[in-house]
Design a protein around this nucleic acid. Structure first.
Lengths: 231, 231
DNA sequence: GGGCGAACGTACCGATTGGTACATTGCGAG
DNA sequence: CTCGCAATGTACCAATCGGTACGTTCGCCC
């Protein structure tokens, strides 16, 4: 991660070529937020140290209080940005024209990859649940931020039911729950599971297997036996 | 929890009626461990305060260090006891003579209830994973403590495969993973999920639905085309 | 019955932690 | 240019936290 150029990289050259490190409120705030995200995800809310966050930035602790006011408000900002970021990262799969079973499998597999690629976010969610959601409940604007994902599932399920290829009696939220639980667990419980069963859930060699697995589960679960629409 | 008798409770009465609060190493240690379990599960490792644990017992902080040596060793003792306790609480289901599909459904449903009934344990596991399992990996004796559960699954799967009622290519650990993930998520992510989707996963009114759901998933997933017995 | 060690309580400590008072500097407006 | 405020840095504080020095008491054993 460190820049290891052969040159000694003289730090205090007479004239800075670009206005590096000039005053820039936006950049300072953004840097604090990014570093804070890493530290909070790394150590939890209580475990994270304000001094530690400041040390990892080019600015000082004073700026945390200047821009965010308190450790808790900083954490709230981190949480909100993380949730919004994760929504933006979910570029929706183009599944509208696929057969429901294929679409469902693809959604499950995408969700799996999405979770594995955002383990910091998963950790923040775990941390927030340890704290009984006392912070996130204050971010009212985040409520229903995932409704798109559920809405998409609902569309597919409805189409499948109409076709007779998807079973009745299962809601989109149920499906979302099953998929999310599986994917979340792999990232969140990596360490205890790996220790107890001697299997690293995030071993790259297992990734294809685990991705296919949740697809299999969802398709097998939701598909009606044949093309026979069961009443 | 506090003794609130109407009497002023004179502290130095000549003869205590019963030998209340006599010296008892076993009891003191056990009380510390129990209270520590609650506090750690409640606040996380870093969030838990040694003083706070001591306050909630009939003894003092000094005794924590007398019996356990440090906050971390106390936490290790809590973790070990919790894992052993959860294993003991898993009185195995009598499923050896049931049809595989029925047995699998019953295991899934039992696992669901088991998780919901031990949310403190679930929280400890979450906490330990936030800390990347750095503590549990030092409790080597816990390794494979759940192998019985997987072994049972393996037996049932093997029988089902022999009968032709259970599909090939799925390991017992895969099944355990799917079931555990689903059950774990409901307890561990109760707060964020409840906030985002306005559904309290642990609402008693939903318990039957959620219990049946994981049974359905497992049976549908693992059963070959043949008849899928329902509960 | 008295001695002796396990069990326990009090009172304290040094380090850490979230937070702040206050001085200073860069930069855009006029 | 210079004035004024946003932005930043330094040095510090009061409270908290994990941990401990030291003294006391209970109860078993010979």
């Amino acid at each position: 991660m460190t820049v290891s150029s052969p040159r000694p990289a003289p730090r205090l050259t007479p004239v800075p070529p670009q206005p590096v490190r000039r005053r820039d409120a936006e950049r300072t705030r953004a840097e604090l937020l990014e570093v804070a995200t890493q530290v909070f995800a790394d150590s939890g809310y209580t475990g994270a140290r304000v001094d530690h966050i400041a040390e990892r930035t080019a600015t000082t602790k004073r700026m945390i209080y200047y821009y965010f006011g308190s450790k808790e408000k900083l954490y709230l900002a981190v949480l909100e940005k993380a949730y919004r970021g994760i929504r933006d990262a979910e570029h929706e799969v183009q599944v509208s024209d696929l057969p429901p079973a294929v679409a469902l499998r693809r959604i499950a597999e995408r969700t799996y990859d999405h979770h594995l690629d955002h383990s910091d976010f998963i950790r923040l969610v775990s941390i927030e649940n340890i704290h009984r959601g006392e912070h996130i409940t204050r971010l009212e604007s985040l409520r229903g931020i995932n409704s798109d994902a559920v809405g998409l599932l609902d569309t597919i399920l409805a189409r499948g039911r109409a076709e007779g290829t998807v079973r009745d009696g299962v809601t989109a939220l149920d499906v979302h729950l099953v998929i999310s639980a599986y994917c979340f667990f792999q990232v969140a419980n990596r360490y205890t599971f790996g220790f107890l069963f001697d299997r690293d859930l995030l071993d790259p060699a297992l990734r294809d297997h685990h991705r296919a697995l949740i697809g299999d589960v969802v398709v097998a679960w939701l598909s009606t036996g044949g093309a026979t629409p069961s009443a």
